[in-house]
Amino acid sequence: MTSGTGTDVLRYTAFSSDPAGGNPAGVVLDASGLDEQRMLGLAAEVGYSETAFVTEADPARRRFTLRYFSPLAEVDFCGHATVATVATAVALAERIGPGELVFDTPAGEIPVLTAADGEGALHATLTSVPTRSRPAEDAELDAALAALGWERGELDPALPPHVAFGGVHHLVLAAAARARLADLAYDFEALADVMRRHGWTTVHLVWREAPDRFHARDPFPVGGVVEDPATGAAAAAFGGYLRELGLVAEPARVVVRQGEDMGRPSELLVAVDPGDPRVRVTGRAVALVTPSVTGPRAV
């Protein structure tokens, strides 16, 4: 599509190959002539939680400079921009072919590997910063449970509450039953207050279906969103949590299903290596709208 300012804006949904699923993001592949205010205005016009802007492009070296904006402000990669990064990586791979890309972002250099799977669909793999995880303190846990309306007895004792880090912090709570995860009706303002006090980006609620398969929901009231349908940053932190607990004894890939209970199913593939503090998160992306003009000048 072309915005009201004449700039080509692509719309993709990340962590899904179905346009009805995943987490939508905006992508502007030629933002070289846009200043900060125009990028912020475009992000507000698009209305998604994240829009990525390619401000410099070197297709020959497969290196690109990215900035990320929410409708309200600029965000750096580690804040919450994995969705827009996956969308941008797939958009670029569609134009210049799959392979490794390097994104220069306000948070530093981000290598992203793009490839086609057996069905021909493109996906992108991001590598997190070193992850870490610690047990949640009683006061933290009690405040979060009160805001959620959950009880301690509804938690899975085999997956203890932790605060996990994969660029930003997330409280990880594991429900003992799928029905508990499905029934999410929390106090928006109370949980936002708890999260601001403790510096959590999301609360990562999970249920373990199998050792390598989890279902997740991510309340995101601090971002003004009741729930996020796909959260790459939380998935990376969760991978570090599993490694810290010793639940991954050898290099393995874990599937995280998210967004199902809100009607936007997403799938995040989380690669964990016990010997590596970094975690790799892979997801597909698919275009939601075909641009009305031929590809952008930058690529």
Rank of each mutant, 00 (worst) to 15 (best):
S3L: 09
S3Y: 00
G6A: 10
L10E: 00
R11C: 03
T13G: 09
A14D: 02
F15K: 04
F15L: 10
A20I: 14
G21R: 03
G21E: 10
A25Y: 08
A25H: 01
V27N: 00
A31D: 03
G33T: 15
L34G: 11
D35Y: 08
Q37V: 06
Q37F: 00
R38I: 15
R38Y: 15
M39S: 04
M39I: 12
G41W: 02
E45C: 07
V46H: 05
Y48S: 08
F53Y: 11
E56K: 11
R61D: 01
R62Y: 05
R63T: 09
R63D: 02
F64S: 00
T65C: 05
T65Q: 03
Y68D: 02
S70V: 07
A73L: 12
G79M: 15
A81L: 15
T85N: 06
V86D: 04
A87H: 00
A89C: 13
V90D: 05
A91N: 07
A93N: 11
I96E: 12
G97A: 00
P98F: 07
F103V: 04
T105A: 04
P106H: 13
A107D: 15
A115K: 11
A115R: 14
T125Q: 13
L126D: 08
S128V: 01
T131Y: 04
S133H: 00
E137D: 14
D138E: 11
D142V: 10
A143V: 07
A144M: 01
L148Y: 07
L148E: 12
W150N: 12
E151L: 04
E154H: 14
D156L: 07
P157S: 12
P157H: 14
P160H: 07
P160M: 08
P160R: 06
P161Q: 13
P161L: 10
V163L: 01
H169S: 13
L171G: 13
A174G: 13
A177W: 06
A182R: 15
D183S: 14
L184N: 06
A190K: 10
A192D: 15
V194N: 11
R197I: 13
H198T: 09
V203W: 02
R208C: 15
P211W: 09
R213H: 00
H215Y: 11
R217A: 00
R217G: 00
R217E: 00
V222I: 07
G223Y: 06
G223R: 01
V226F: 01
A230L: 06
T231C: 14
T231H: 14
A237Y: 14
A237P: 14
G239A: 08
G239V: 04
G239Q: 02
Y241Q: 13
E244T: 14
L245I: 09
L245A: 04
G246Q: 15
P251Q: 06
A252I: 03
V256R: 01
V256D: 03
R257K: 11
D261Y: 15
G263K: 14
S266C: 03
E267D: 05
L269C: 14
V270E: 02
R278V: 15
V279F: 12
R280C: 14
V281Y: 10
T282E: 05
G283V: 01
R284E: 02
V286Y: 05
S292N: 01
S292L: 06
V293M: 08
R297K: 04
